[in-house]
Design a protein around this nucleic acid. Structure first.
Length: 455
RNA sequence: GAGGGCGUAGCUCAGUAGGUUAGAGCGACAGUUUGUGGCACUGUAGGUCGUGGGUUCGAGACCCAUCGUCCUCCCCA
């Protein structure tokens, strides 16, 4: 073991990075609290059963599994080998691993609700800010350990929840200074399209293909649909669907011509219309964009779906969410509907760094550096410093009696805005010299004036 | 899971067609005669050139493998 290193896709965060990340967390947390959501934390690891099968085949592969302890016990070696053979043939993995790291915050929340629904006041609104882990290959904007900030409401079918969640997105990103587009769609609209074109069993084929529209283009999407067994008539309908353009209202009008007679479609369109109408006179409306190609992971969404994109940065989605009408059903607690959104903090950080959106104040740590100019002097400085600390001002006393030069440079490097100089002269007069290191101006203050000084 | 780029000092990199003791900038540390910083100047420390093989009289450079890292696709936050 020579050079230490980090596991792939994980990072250390230095002081300035932590401060900037905390600024994002705090902004989002404040908004969540303002909308009546309460905090929840769940363990980093869950039972593997809780997570498996909830994220689709791709998702299952990306779950970080935890090896069971005690496999090296000699008396269990034969058993362990048998279990390993089972894994190689794609069977269950319980003998070797029965726990896994959290993959997202939604499923652990669903598990929590399923376990505690008897005690929860419905509708139950919780927010959760914790790291999640994915065994993905790291690349730009993609990490193996990253934070999500989720807000979900369960126990309510009301579209008012969707309205508020859209508001939370718009409000949080406004405060962070990130210009975003909140794309919205309804899974019911996608379902209706499938019903009109080949039947609901083609839903996944259709959505997977049309989701790629902006990447591979219309022709390739049509090819893929054809390969997936759709007739040219059906593909024509989908083509018309994909060519819908314009503002939100004209898009919906065009959509009505395609699926407007389908019962599911009517419901889906009504959801989007409700959401748009509710925000008609709000600042939120200019961020909302109906996008019928938006699909997202279709595993549990049933109604409105959201996806947030930063407008001036090249970055995947920085947030996403939607309605799931039966999330806890897989935990044998049926009929609890819910809707939620998620913020991807690490991507938001990358976008804000790229666009230089962090305010300078975020970096402020220590406010005042007390110079150390001798034994008696530093003792007096220490007493004054403690008084300032009692008033909530972050202070440091230089650790040893060094030359001015060194003490100033220390303040510079830590970006400390004020220096308090208390030397032999000040000690006699019960005063201090306070210097603003940014402007370079300094004034002499009495000790009591220093305690009342506005930093 | 598939494909591509890159691994030289703490960081960013330079190292010409393979040729002696491997360089710069920034940073760190110390000093430019100990009560006023940022600048400037001087000096010091720090690298078995990711690792292991191979080609060669000779490899940081070329070949193979391996590990790491970054990126693209898939999927996602």
């Amino acid at each position: 073991m020579s050079k230490p290193s980090l596991p792939q896709g994980t990072r250390d965060f230095s002081a300035s990075v932590v401060r900037k990340r905390n600024y994002i967390f705090q902004t989002i947390r404040t908004v969540f609290e303002l909308y009546g959501f309460q905090p929840l934390e769940t363990p980093a690891m869950e039972n593997l059963d809780t997570l498996m099968g909830k994220y689709g085949d791709e998702g299952d592969k990306l779950i970080f599994k935890i090896l069971n302890n005690g496999l090296d016990n000699p008396s269990k070696q034969e058993q362990a080998k048998l279990e390993f053979d089972k894994i190689l043939s794609g069977k269950n993995t319980k003998g070797l691993t029965e726990r896994a790291l959290r993959y997202d915050l939604t499923i652990p929340f669903a598990r929590y609700v399923a376990m505690n629904h008897g005690q929860l006041t419905m509708p139950f609104k919780r927010y959760q800010i914790q790291p999640v882990w994915r065994a993905d290959r790291p690349q730009k904007g993609r990490y193996r350990e990253f934070y999500q900030c989720d807000a979900d409401v369960v126990g309510s079918y009301s579209l008012l929840n969707e309205v508020e969640l859209a508001n939370i997105y718009a409000s949080a990103f406004k405060q962070l200074g990130v210009d975003v587009t909140i794309k919205i769609n309804s899974r019911k609209i996608l379902a209706a399209l499938a019903e009109c074109c080949g039947g609901s069993d083609k839903l996944v084929d259709i959505t997977v293909a049309i989701d790629k529209l902006d990447k591979i283009g219309l022709e390739k999407v049509k090819e893929e649909l054809s390969e997936r067994g759709l007739t040219s008539l059906q593909i024509n309908t989908i083509e018309t669907y994909l060519q819908i353009e314009g503002d939100n209202y004209s898009k919906i009008e065009q959509l009505k011509k395609i699926i407007g007679t389908n019962e599911t479609g009517i419901k889906g369109i009504a959801e989007l219309e409700y959401l748009l109408a509710y925000h008609k006179d709000s600042f939120v409306i200019k961020h909302l964009q109906a996008d019928f190609t938006l699909a997202r992971g279709l595993n549990y969404y049933t109604g409105v779906i959201f996806e947030v994109k930063a407008n001036n940065a090249q970055m995947g989605s920085i947030g996403g969410g939607g309605r799931y009408d039966d999330l806890t059903g897989t935990f044998d607690v049926p009929n609890i509907p819910g809707v939620g959104i998620s913020f991807g903090v690490d991507r938001i950080y990358d976008v804000m760094e790229e666009l230089q959106l962090f305010p300078a104040e975020v970096q402020t740590g220590t406010q005042v550096l007390f110079f150390n100019l001798g034994e008696a002097e530093s003792k007096a400085a220490f007493a004054l410093m403690q008084s300032l600390r009692d008033k909530g001002v972050a202070c440091e006393l230089y650790h040893e009696n060094s030359k001015f030069d060194k003490q100033f440079k220390y303040a510079d490097k830590k970006q400390i805005p004020y220096a308090v100089i208390l030397g032999s002269k000040e000690l006699l007069e019960n005063t201090v010299m306070i210097k603003n290191l940014i402007t370079g101006t300094q004034v002499s203050l009495s000790n009591s004036e220093l305690i009342g000084f506005q930093f």
